[in-house]
Computed example of a mutant assay.
Amino acid sequence: MQIILDLYELKNICSQMSELGAANYAKSTTPAKDLMSQREAYRVFGEARVKRWVHDGLVTGSRMGSTIRSKIQYSRAELMAANTAEKFNSIINK
């Protein structure tokens, strides 16, 4: 199966891959700055999409406390990777 991309789409793919690389580098050097609260993740990426990514196993949240009401935080790099994967899936599997 041959995949045909416009030059514009290829430019966007390269740009998004460089952003993901920078996000993963930031995650490895300063892990605390990579974390994003659940509320912020919902605001940036959309609540339904984040919930779907969690359900599908693309993203995992972690509680920052021992109680059931403690804050859930997500890795910004993981969220960006899931977002990019979703976009590329729609481009490749038209």
Rank of each mutant, 00 (worst) to 15 (best):
V59S: 05
P31E: 04
V44A: 05
V59K: 01
G57C: 10
F45C: 02
K27Y: 09
L20C: 06
A22R: 11
A32P: 00
V44Q: 07
R49G: 03
D56T: 00
A23L: 12
K27D: 06
F45E: 00
S28C: 10
L58M: 14
D56M: 06
F45K: 00
E47I: 06
K51F: 04
Y42W: 13
Y25P: 00
A22P: 01
S28A: 14
D34N: 12
T29Q: 15
T29A: 11
N24Y: 12
L20M: 09
F45M: 02
L20N: 03
R49P: 02
K51M: 10
L58K: 12
L20R: 03
V44L: 13
G21K: 11
G46M: 05
E40M: 13
R49C: 06
A23K: 03
L20K: 02
Y25C: 08
R49L: 13
A23D: 07
Y25N: 09
R43L: 14
T60F: 09
D56A: 06
T29E: 15
E19K: 14
V44R: 09
S37F: 03
Y42A: 02
V50R: 00
V50E: 00
A26Q: 12
R39C: 08
V54C: 14
L58E: 07
L35Y: 07
L35S: 05
G57R: 06
Y42H: 07
M36Y: 00
A23N: 04
T30H: 14
Y25S: 10
G46S: 06
